[in-house]
């Protein structure tokens, strides 16, 4: 608890943690937005969400190894993941859209193990990062450092989230996605190719995660086994924020990022993950208690 005293004595550390938390929180929100999309439209909880983020990071790594600018990794990762997401849908996911939740949970869990072990075989289990080439800002006489790539990650997460929201509101495919989410059978009767809508939804989700992964590898770091915490963070954010509420997803994401930074600092970095998972359980238990109080799940 020494660190807690440190926070009280030197308030400027709080600012550092707050900023770091918000930067990473925006990326969490981006992945969560994708999860909410897939959950809402296809009724699938995509456990391989975190692995898509991880893949986005490794693709950016490859872009850099090819001698290109790391920033180029963001669109490249998004495009590659879009294709992969589409392929995964055509290969596996379409079979489980109609299945019960546990089947889809387990099947996407299988996909996540496959992807994580594949990357482990190819790149090894080491922690990787990519130098973005952007600079650092020093605030408060150098007491607070802000790497510009984190700011970029923050801003881009917002921009991408907003773009997706606009797409769902206005574009033809976006409207088809929303119609399918509300009532797939009615959408089919109206001539919407729901199978294609599902494929697009899953691919868009993968692309979002890919972009998030590219930002993560530049601003923070990646490794093959990083996926599950990202998946569960997305899940937590969606549960708290609900499906289809962009502002709530962003605030929940930022809140989680900040809470995690403070917990990691106060409890020690080795307990940061334990904190995330216990928080997830706590959130689910709290939700349960609230539901039980209402006592109206019987139809």
């Amino acid at each position: 608890m020494q660190n807690l005293q440190l926070l009280l004595q030197a308030p400027v550390f709080n600012i550092q943690l707050l900023l770091d938390g918000m930067f990473i929180g925006a990326v969490f929100a981006l992945a969560a937005f994708g999860m909410a999309l897939v959950w809402g439209v296809m009724n699938i909880i995509n456990v391989s969400q975190g692995e898509f983020v991880m893949l986005g990071g490794f693709i950016t790594l490859m872009v850099v190894q090819a001698g290109l600018s790391p920033l180029l990794g963001i669109p490249v990762a998004a495009v590659v993941l879009f294709v992969l997401g589409w392929a995964l849908y055509r290969g596996i996911i379409w079979r489980i859209v109609e299945a019960d939740m546990f089947t889809s949970l387990l099947a996407t869990f299988g996909v996540s193990i496959m992807l994580q072990q594949l990357m482990n075989e190819i790149f090894g289990a080491d922690v990787r990062t990519v130098e973005s080439g952007l600079g650092i800002w020093f605030l408060f006489d150098g007491m607070v450092t802000v790497t510009q790539i984190k700011v970029l990650a923050f801003v881009l997460s917002f921009v991408i989230g907003l773009a997706l929201w606009l797409f769902l509101k206005t574009a033809r495919l976006g409207q088809a996605i929303r119609a399918t989410a509300q009532n797939a059978r009615a959408a089919r009767i109206l001539g919407i190719d729901t199978d294609r809508v599902y494929a697009a939804t899953y691919a868009i989700n993968a692309a979002l995660c890919g972009a998030a992964g590219a930002l993560v590898v530049m601003a923070w770091s990646i490794h093959p086994y990083m996926g599950l915490p990202y998946t569960l963070r997305s899940f937590m954010i969606v549960i708290v924020a609900g499906l289809g509420n962009l502002a709530a997803v962003i605030s929940a994401g930022l809140g989680l990022g900040v809470a995690e930074q403070f917990a990691g600092f106060i409890l020690g970095a080795e307990f940061q993950l334990a904190f995330v998972f216990l928080l997830l359980v706590a959130v689910l238990v709290a939700r349960q208690v609230m539901l039980a109080r209402k006592r109206q799940y019987l139809k």
Binding site: M101, F235, F277, L280
Partner: peptide
């Protein structure tokens, strides 16, 4: 008290924690 996938994911989170 949780149903379906909420139970599944809560147990997963608890196991890792």
């Amino acid at each position: 008290g949780m149903r379906g996938h909420y139970f599944a994911i809560a147990t997963l989170g608890l196991a890792v924690a």
